[in-house]
């Protein structure tokens, strides 16, 4: 692919979803976008880009941005963040919010729903402590197709075996052929919405807990900074942010600091890192 075509795709992706592709990842463009080009009647990606340069086609641009995203997710991903949530963060919030009895959680890149549903199942286990509480889980993603899947709540046999304890499978899912459907109770505990992290999140309100896991890794530095600053603006002063295991706020924002090194949890008044931890 000529560099002007590569540049066009790179700019489109950065602009639309924040996805950063370096030259050594061009094979990803080839494998993921050739099917899109073919579907729209072009023989090559270059032909598709040429056509787009002549005449903008919004639906195709959206499809291109979507095809390049990685949607991989699993239930209770990495286990520990969810244990921390249940054992440390949740009791703290219940204590701090005991007057309003309201707790708001945001999954900011929820993919097909495994992350918010994992949280909803955890809250269900704690139901005895939550009576009279207004618990809200807002789950968003840029991709309409994964959101549709998430709302449907139907998971393959492979998906329900990744991270989901079998006791929870039996308790919260019903079998439909080779698929498993999550119960209405858990499904209704989550509100799904489309939201692009490159835009202003303040319209979603304020949150006690934000999960924004395994999406910053795809962004360049400037985009990571912008997104983290924006998240800082909607996380309550005593709220927390969960990032993925290879993500951090260090060196990217002045607002959120690790609660403790290596935990993957960040808050407004955490401890600024020692020099050794700076990248």
């Amino acid at each position: 692919m000529g560099s002007e075509y590569f540049d066009y795709i790179r700019d489109l992706l950065k602009d639309r979803s924040g996805l950063a592709v370096s030259l050594d990842k061009t094979y990803l463009i080839d494998t993921r976008l050739l099917p899109v080009a073919r579907k729209h009647g072009y023989d090559t990606i270059v032909d598709m880009v040429k056509a787009l340069k002549i005449r903008h086609n919004e639906a195709l641009v959206v499809e291109i941005a979507e095809a390049m995203n990685t949607h991989e997710s699993l239930f209770f991903r990495d286990v520990e963040p969810f244990e921390l949530f249940k054992n440390i963060i949740l009791p703290q919030v219940l204590q701090r919010r005991k007057d309003t009895r309201r707790m708001r959680i945001w999954c900011a890149a929820c993919s097909s729903g495994q992350e918010p549903y994992s949280l909803a199942m955890l809250l269900h286990e704690e139901a005895h402590r939550l009576s009279g509480w207004n618990m809200e889980i807002v789950a968003t993603d840029i991709s309409h197709s994964v959101l549709a899947r998430a709302k449907e709540g139907l998971f393959s046999q492979f998906e329900v075996q990744r991270g989901l304890p079998v006791q929870m499978l039996v308790k919260h899912f019903a079998q439909e052929g080779d698929y498993w459907r999550i119960s209405d109770k858990i499904r209704k505990a989550v509100t799904f919405k489309a939201f692009n992290l490159l835009t202003d999140p303040r319209g979603l309100g304020r949150f006690d807990v934000v999960f924004c896991r395994n999406v910053l890794i795809y962004f360049d530095l400037e985009t990571k900074r912008k997104v983290l600053d924006a998240l800082g603006g909607v996380i309550a002063p005593d709220g927390v942010l969960f990032l993925g295991s290879s993500e951090s706020t260090i060196g990217l924002t002045e607002q959120l600091w690790p609660v403790e090194a290596g935990l993957g949890v960040y808050k407004h008044t955490g401890s600024p890192p020692s020099l050794a931890e700076l990248p």
Binding site: L74, Q157, F158, Q161, R162, G163, V166
Partner: peptide
């Protein structure tokens, strides 16, 4: 725990 066949190394590892 319970693994439904077909399984692969990833599922065994996860479980």
């Amino acid at each position: 725990e319970y693994i439904m066949k077909p399984f692969d190394s990833e599922i065994i590892q996860a479980k």
